[in-house]
Write a protein that binds this DNA or RNA. Structure first.
Length: 227
DNA sequence: GCGACAG
DNA sequence: ATCTTGTCGC
């Protein structure tokens, strides 16, 4: 994949926030018009106290969800985890493996928020702006926003609201299991985000692209290289 | 000052 | 995110 270098990553927290406020205006959301054949999922895994990070990407065929490619790498991180600045910790390492994939994904699932972020630029939106490619944020918990109780059946969802705006949805991907927090990253409207999440999430709580990436990075971190 | 706070 | 054992429910 072609990855333009839009800004530095070795920045102070204040500079990171400035960058987010600047890039926020570049986030465009639109209805998906062309066919989606390949969906990528990204995830990372850390060693307990060290600054070592394993990153992984899987590419699944859509809608069959058959895995057609996977890549992983090990690298070092310098930026700490700070709520609201996650992308400055994880994106540099993720860009490394994205350059290695051969099958160009039409859509990318990220582990974290899209626009459901204090400054409207969660990790999925940030990555989407950099790549100018459709991304969806699927987080396991809330960063910002308020929401009403969600129905217990799979597929039920409520909107996530923040400062009088709808920024995402709380979606029950599996009956009687804790819902996930979906928000548009880049290039996809919320309605399509919910649809793609449910269509890629037939059995488990986490959508298959992200779940497969999670299994990959945990496998290589704990058991070493797999076949 | 206090509480909240993606991964 | 990671560490960590058994346990409860579908």
């Amino acid at each position: 994949m072609d990855i333009p270098d839009l800004h530095p990553w070795n920045v102070t927290y204040e500079e990171a926030i400035k960058i987010q406020k600047c890039l926020k205006d570049k986030v465009i959301l639109k209805k998906i018009d062309r066919r989606i054949n390949y969906i990528a999922g990204l995830d990372v895994s850390y060693a307990k106290g060290a600054n070592t990070i394993w990153t992984g990407v899987v590419v699944l065929d859509f809608p069959s969800l058959v895995k057609i490619e996977e890549r992983w790498a090990q690298s070092k991180v310098s930026f700490p985890y700070i709520p609201g600045l996650l992308s400055f910790r994880e994106i540099p390492a993720l860009l490394d493996i994205l350059t290695k994939i051969e099958v160009e994904p039409d859509l990318i699932f990220c582990d974290g928020q899209g626009i459901a972020h204090p400054r409207g630029l969660g990790i999925a939106s940030h990555l989407g702006v950099l790549l100018r490619k459709p991304t969806i944020g699927c987080a396991k918990s809330r960063l910002v926003g308020e929401f009403d109780p969600v129905g217990e059946d799979r597929g039920e969802h409520v909107y996530l609201r923040y400062q009088n705006r709808i920024i995402g949805a709380v979606v029950r991907t599996r009956s009687r299991v804790k819902p996930v927090f979906i928000s548009p990253g880049y290039g996809v409207v919320l309605k399509d985000c919910i649809r793609f999440v449910l269509e890629t999430c037939p059995t488990y709580r986490i959508p298959e692209p992200t779940r497969q990436a999670h299994l990959l990075v945990n496998s290589v971190r704990c058991n070493g290289v797999r076949s």
